[in-house]
Structure formats: C-alpha cells, structure tokens
Design a protein around this nucleic acid. Structure first.
Lengths: 342, 342
DNA sequence: CTGTTAGCGCTTTCAT
DNA sequence: ATGAAAGCGCTAACAG
C-alpha cells in the first residue's frame, strides 16, 4: 500500500504539506493541491484509517447494532436497512460495522465494547423506544449517534424521522371528512416512538371531529399480515361495534385486512374503507390491490441518505439544529375509501 | 476512556510491561499478569483498536461483502450468515464490517477500497463461484480470507466446507441401492462450487451403478419452492421419462416437490421417492413433512464457528493445513424413500 | 522479570 | 506557501 510518505516523495513535498493538500487546506496553492491529488490517485493512495483515527479521532467507521428478533428473518426490513445504510455510508467513504445481537444478549454491553474499542465514530440507532437505553448510554458516553425516529418530544439528538403524527392525523382526517366515525387503527408494537406518534395523530383527528376518545379503536402488534387478518376478524365479530374504516400502519397489515374482509364477505370501499401508510419495505404494489389501496407514501429507502448525512454531521460536530430532519410524504388517494354506508 | 498508560500508572509498572501482562506474554509473572488484568478490568480498559492495528497490523476487524441479489430479501440466508458470523467474531473480540453491494455495483472495487483503507484484517467469502474474482484479488493482494466452500480442486486458501460431493453421492447411492435408476437432481444455481460438487457426487453414484450419464436428470436454479414445484411438474409431463426418485438440494425445494407431487396425484414414497439435503436455513421441520422427509443433515449454523476460527488462524499466519476444515454431516432416514414401483 | 527506546501513518501546532 | 517536530495509543526489539 502506498503511504502518505510515498506520495510526498513523488510530489517532492514534505509529508505535512502533502497531507494538507489532500485535505483541502486553504494554505496550499490550488495548483499544488491538484498535482498532489493526481499523484495520490495514480499511486492508488488510500489514507490508513487506523492512523488517521489515532490522531484525528475519526476512523470513518460507524456502528449498527440490531437485535435478533422473532421476525428479523421473515421481515425484509433488516436487509433493507443494512443494504441502504451500508451503501450510503460507502458513498461518504465510511463503513458500517454490524453486530446482530443474539436474542438473549443484553444490548448495552455490545455498545460498551464497540465504544470502548475506540474504533467507531458513531452509531445509527433504529427502532427507538420511548425510553431508549442505547441513546441514554451513548449520550452519556458522548458518542455521536443518529436515530431513525425521535426519542421524546424535544429530542437532544440527531435524527431523521417522518412526521408520523401528521401523517396519521391526515389519514384519519380524510376518513372523518368522508363521514366515518368508527375508525380502527392497526398500529405497530407498543413502546416504539413512531407507534405513539401515530396514535397521537389519530386521536387528535378524532378529537377534531368531536369523536370521543372512547370511540377510538386501536390494535397493535408486529406489522404482519396476521395482525391485519386477526384484528379485522375480531373487530367485526361484535356486530354492534364494527368499524366503518380501517387505518393500517403498513401495507403488510393492509394485505391481511383485505384478506379478512374478503373472507367476511365485506366489500371495500362500500362497506369498509381501508387506508394504509406505505413505507415501501413490503414488496407489495399498493396500486395492484383490488380495489387499489389509498396510501400515504414515504419510502423508507429515502431515509438512508439523510441518516448518513446526519450522523456524519454529528461526528463532525455540526450544530444540532442541522441534524434534525423530517422527511416528506405524499398522499395517494385511490379506490379503497368512500363514505360509510348508512 | 482508560488507556494503557492509566493502567500502567495504577499498577506501578511501565506501559510495556503492562501491555505484555495484558497480552499473556510468558515473561511476566503470573501474579503480575493477574493483578494487571484486574486493574484493567476495574478501569474498564479496552485496547484502542486503531493504535493496535497501527503497530501490530491487527485491528480485529474483518470484512463481509454480500451482493444484493434478487432473493436476498426473501431468503433468510442473509440474516443467518450475518447474525451467525457477527456473534461468532464478537466472541473472539473481533467485529464485522459489512457492505451490501448494490445490484449494479462491481464487487472488486469494494474490496479494493476496504483493503486499501488498511483497517481490516481479513475477509469472509460466501457463495464462491468456480472462477472467483474476489478470491483471486485477495490472494494477489495478500489479504487473509476464508471461504465458505472451496474454490477449485486443490484450494490454496483457508476454508470451511461440507463434503457436498460425498453427501450427494451417498444420497444417490441410497436410492440406487433401493433399485432406482431414474433419479432426478434438483440442484442450485449453476456456477457455484457446491453445486458442481453435488453434481459430481450424483454422477459418480450413477456410474457406480452402471447408470449411463445420459440418464442423469439435473435441474438447477435458485433454491426455492418454485424450483421444486416447476421442475417436478415438468419432469412428470413426459410420461415416458418420469423419474422414480427426486433429490433436492434444499428443504425448500423439497417443499415445492411435495406440493407438485400432491397436485399430480403421485404418492410419496410409493410412486416417487424424495430425498433432500437439510442445511437448516429454511425454517422448516423435515420431520413434519408428510411423509416425513429423509435428509442428510448439516446445519449451516455450525459453520460460523469454524469459519471465524479459520479466518482468525489465517490472519495469525497459521499453516494452511490447519485452516481447511470439512464439517460433518449425518443421514436421517425417514419415510420419503422406498423401492421404485414396477 | 522489567524498563527504555523506537516507530506504525497520519495530522497538527509552531516555526519559517 | 512550506517544513520540522511532536504525538495519538500501542507493541516489539533491545537492553539490563
């Protein structure tokens, strides 16, 4: 491997100046800068990460720790996250160190080890919970991190998130505007911050329409077809309290809901309206649902770039306000919602 | 973070001696060694990987690059590999750097970048092909690596593999012993080394029983239920040449075969015998098949430990002969095979 | 058994 | 605009 010294020798400069040229310091003539970079390229020079880390504190390595959960294998979520992040960081000349924690493995010691080794610049946290131990630990250890989602109402950390509260408020609002008053929400696993945000948006919209919170119908669980299937069957088993509309936290859930409604002989949207949020991680085309599914659309794949950017910023010490990003979404109305039947 | 200096000060020793104590050098009294280790523990000392790498050449970081392929998401293979390797390496105080190459991303530049950075000690190569570019590149670059499988007939690299040729020879032999002469092999994707090995074993067993190679029936493809399903239907569509036994490269394939045979009204094992190799990555219990599936059994999860050990050895410069390991397998005869009907 | 010295490859003062 | 020198945290060669 070519070292900085080799480049310096070739350029007829000192190691110092060569380093400065390569790092775009202002006190190097532009001509020299370009010349040195050319030489570096021709020598296939790559800075030694360990050496750089030792002196500058940055190694270009970031950590990603995921718990090995029940549905990790079946869910395409995992591969989506890992693949998206790894290529996004690669683009920034950074690398991901991955650890999959075993089911019985406590998570904090993993971070402790990774942090203690001093080889990593920061972490990406996914699936935050309301009272997130990992974030607490990393904050205390003063290790930069970015969260996919938000922890608490006024987060002191870098994050990328979508506006779950508004999204689910808008969905609910769309349904109340159509005249629905018994609207079910099939949400995710209790404890996740985004699940709480979605509930808030939903409840706020109900309140807006003077629907009492006691009329809220919320079910939660792993976002699978089974949830949609089972929840729907249960909801309709009590004839007196059937919802007229169902909001699904994911397309996968919606798939189950469609199946259940078909089984129950209920037609969409005439008898039941269905609306879902689509993060594009289920490999399902919502326009191919029959009837075509109305969705709010916020592709999760669009989050890797901002996540990487925010972590990069956090490591470089950028001001927090630049590191808190809310992604955009859009609403696609198709044919799965209609006014409730009398 | 506590540094070696802190530990040394606390122990009243020089940094050198402290380092030696921590690394179990023989020229430190056992008492001192223990005392220093205790102090290190109480100070929560963790060696700085970058510093260590810089001087000793080892960082404890190994690379894993996987191509993002069509079936990566659906297949539980990926999570299995990543999770198994990451915890096995963690046990050895090593970490995995992961990169998921995008579909259009050439693979060698990825290795080039990772190697060039000089932060990694070695690589794990999975899914080797007959003419593996990655292995060629790493060999030339003199970077240690271990292969899950073997490349070529007399590999000059560290590997862990199972004896695919013998396994499939034995399966075929079992069927010929029962009297079968038209035996189909549903294999994996062409080009993979293990697929070729399996074909060799199969053909050798046919030859042993004086079945002409022209009577070999081989189909290949991604190891999915679809392959089993489609291949079976096609094989039986020509009444003159129906096989009397089917060997499946994976349990997933066998699942498809069972489905197809049921659909075709063919009974197992009376009309068709079925045998599969079970690597335990499909979450399917072979004893719960009806009739219970006969298999050769070689859990892939048992390969992470030897793979990590071999790479560790390769990095430490152990002799190649210690780094070439063949895993064991066993044969479980159940109720899916019987002599062919007349 | 133990300490001194040197140096891994790089960045950053501090001089010039 | 450039170079000399120091040092990041650690290990290894070389003395005692």
């Amino acid at each position: 491997m070519a070292t900085l010294k080799d480049v310096a020798k070739e350029a007829g400069l000192s190691v110092t100046q060569t380093s400065r040229a390569l790092n775009d310091h202002s006190d190097v003539s532009v001509a020299t800068r370009e010349r040195v970079k050319d030489i570096a390229r021709s020598l296939q020079y790559r800075p030694n990460l360990s050496a750089r880390k030792l002196v500058s504190g940055r190694s270009g390595l970031v950590g990603l720790v995921v718990p090995r959960t029940y549905d990790l294998a079946s869910d395409s979520m995992f591969i989506e996250v890992v693949s998206g992040l790894s290529s996004e960081f690669a683009r920034r000349d950074m690398q991901c160190v991955l650890h999959v924690a075993q089911e019985d493995e406590p998570i904090i010691p993993v971070y402790k080890r990774l942090v203690g080794n001093g080889a990593l610049d920061g972490f990406v946290l996914i699936d935050p919970s309301h009272d997130d131990k990992r974030a607490a630990f990393l904050s205390k250890a003063k290790v930069p991190f970015v969260v996919h989602g938000r922890i608490g109402s006024d987060p002191g950390h870098a994050y990328f998130d979508i506006d779950n509260e508004t999204i689910f408020h808008d969905i609910t609002r769309h349904l109340t505007d159509l005249g629905h008053r018994r609207i079910a929400l099939l949400n995710g696993v209790e404890g996740r911050t985004y699940v709480a945000a979605r509930t808030r948006g939903y409840l706020r919209a109900l309140t807006d329409s003077r629907i009492p919170p006691s009329d809220a119908i919320i079910r939660g669980g792993a976002m699978t077809e089974s949830l949609g299937l089972i929840a729907t069957v249960e909801l309709f088993s009590d004839p007196a309290n059937r919802p007229t509309a169902i909001i699904c936290g994911s397309v996968r859930i919606a798939k189950g809901v469609y199946q259940a409604l078909q089984g129950l002989g209920l037609s969409i949207p005439d008898q039941v309206s269905v609306f879902a949020h689509d993060d594009h991680i289920a490999q399902m085309k919502t326009e191919a649902f029959y009837p075509a599914l109305s969705v709010t659309d916020a592709p999760m794949r669009e989050s890797w770039q901002p996540l990487a950017a925010c972590l990069d910023g956090a490591i470089s010490g950028a001001p927090l306000s630049d590191l808190q990003v809310i992604g955009s979404h859009r609403t696609i109305l198709r044919h799965s919602t209609a006014p409730p039947c009398q």
